[in-house]
């Protein structure tokens, strides 16, 4: 709990310090701009449209795979703590679990879903 309080303090202090520094910068040198100065840089020419678009994320199979593995990680933490106490059964169990998931990677790789260009 005390640790939590300290961590939270540090988080807030760092966040605050950076925002304040940015504010100080803006007070020292207030930003000024004209329409041409706001054009995003791509080598000196202007775009036709806004950059924000329905961005085609071509690695979405990988993103789905990540979701599955993220779950697996959650199980691994408590497993790691009791591993030595539980011994062989813990090893075998996690081995099974991981092997199942590794098949997922193997399949995804086999399907070429990590590549997109």
């Amino acid at each position: 709990m005390e640790g939590g309080a300290a961590a939270l303090t540090i988080l807030v202090v760092a966040l605050g310090a950076f925002l304040i520094l940015k504010g100080v910068g803006d007070v020292l040198n207030p930003p000024r701009s004209t329409a041409p100065s706001r054009v995003p840089f791509s080598g000196g020419l202007s775009p036709d449209t806004h950059a924000w678009n329905r961005y085609h994320v071509r690695y979405y199979p990988m993103a789905l795979l990540f979701l599955a593995f993220d779950m697996e990680m959650v199980f691994m933490y408590p497993w790691a703590v009791v591993f030595v106490e539980e011994g062989l059964i813990a090893l075998i169990e996690m081995l099974m679990f991981i092997t199942i998931l590794l098949f997922g990677i193997l399949y995804t790789w086999r399907e070429g879903a990590f590549r997109w260009s």
């Binding site: 199979p61 599955a68 099974m96 997922g104 399949y107 399907e111 879903a113």
Partner: peptide, 26 residues
């Protein structure tokens, strides 16, 4: 433990299903 291992198989099924559905050049 059974829940745990079932979760593993479910995740695998989810992975394979997702990849089979979305993979362009599978």
């Amino acid at each position: 433990m059974l829940v745990f291992q079932t979760a593993g198989v479910t995740l695998l099924a989810a992975m394979i299903g997702a990849v089979a559905l979305v993979s362009v050049r599978g």
